[in-house]
Design a protein around this nucleic acid. Structure first.
Length: 276
DNA sequence: GTGAGTGTTTCGCT
DNA sequence: TAGCGAAACACTCA
């Protein structure tokens, strides 16, 4: 589930709980989660201190004292939890970081899609595919209208799919893509080069505003997502279209429709969002 | 019990 | 090269 606001919420929680903590030992009950060399992963993390936790798009970057960075992507259902030393592994714990202060940091992932890798700090952009091709963060400064015009108008892709492509804009997922298209009154199957510059300006504003609002609300909880404190976000109460198929549009009352766009469930209003 | 659907990314094919 | 569809896996719901 995690999109940018959820990952940012996790980052803040982890920063509060484990920034400055030193790692004593690393157990990896599900070795497939680590895509770099497993032996080196365990060896290099042992004795390292977590100096800081950064985020880029939906990726978490654990900056370690030994000039290594652990890159972690939660994919669908990855979660971190902090437990006292000795606490039993969860059913889906894939990695257990034992800390010297008698706590342990678990990485749990029921669907086993999440991945982590250890790379030298500074090399992560080069070594981690996906991270190196990431588009700008959806912020006022990074996501300029000039950039939007350039990428949207030179492509002929369907806008919903285009927004989900992290190399265009980092951090949008299925939920917020549906939300911002509804807010901007753009049909999800509109091709990107057909969207006027004026509309792109509105879309840009809505993306920045929506991601920022969702982050303030600690993200959206659809199924199993919870933040590091085991709390759930409450932005789902703010969603206008996602998960509301067959219910009336909150703007015009028309029944919202659900279709597939590029394999992804997509909810929209057939009256407000007309295809051009 | 069975089949469809689920938040993300990568990879291979055209 | 750009774009599309399938695959990775486990669980829930109809």
């Amino acid at each position: 589930m995690p999109e940018l606001p959820e990952v940012e919420t996790v980052r803040r929680g982890l920063t509060n709980l484990v920034e400055g903590a030193k790692i004593k030992r690393v157990d990896v009950p599900y070795p497939k989660v680590v895509t770099s060399d497993l032996k080196l992963f365990q060896k290099d993390l042992t004795g390292a201190t977590i100096d800081r936790i950064d985020r880029r798009g939906k990726y978490l970057l654990f900056r370690l004292s030994n000039d290594q960075t652990m890159v972690s992507h939660l994919r669908m259902e990855g979660q971190y939890s902090v437990e006292p030393e000795g606490a039993a592994l969860h059913k889906h714990t894939e990695v257990a970081f034992h800390l010297v202060d008698d706590r342990q940091l678990f990485y749990n992932d029921t669907r086993r899609f999440g991945r982590m890798t250890l790379v030298p700090t500074g090399k992560e952009l080069h070594d981690v595919s996906g991270l190196k091709d990431l588009g700008p963060e959806p912020t006022e400064d990074a996501l300029t209208l000039d950039y939007m015009k350039e990428i949207f108008h030179k492509s002929h892709r369907v806008v919903k799919t285009f927004l989900l492509d992290q190399s265009n804009i980092a951090g949008l997922g299925n939920i917020y893509a549906d939300e911002v298209l509804w807010m901007t009154r753009i049909h999800p199957e509109t091709t990107t080069d057909k969207i006027s510059t004026r509309k792109l300006g509105e879309l840009r504003e809505n993306i920045i505003k929506e991601i920022s609002r969702a982050t303030e609300h600690h993200g959206t909880t659809v199924h199993s997502f919870s933040n590091i404190f085991g709390e759930t976000g409450h932005f789902q109460n703010e969603l206008q279209v996602y998960g509301r198929a067959k219910l009336p549009c909150l703007r015009c009352g028309t029944t919202l429709r659900k279709i597939k766009v590029g394999q992804r469930g997509t909810t929209f209003c057939p009256k407000c969002q007309i295809k051009k």
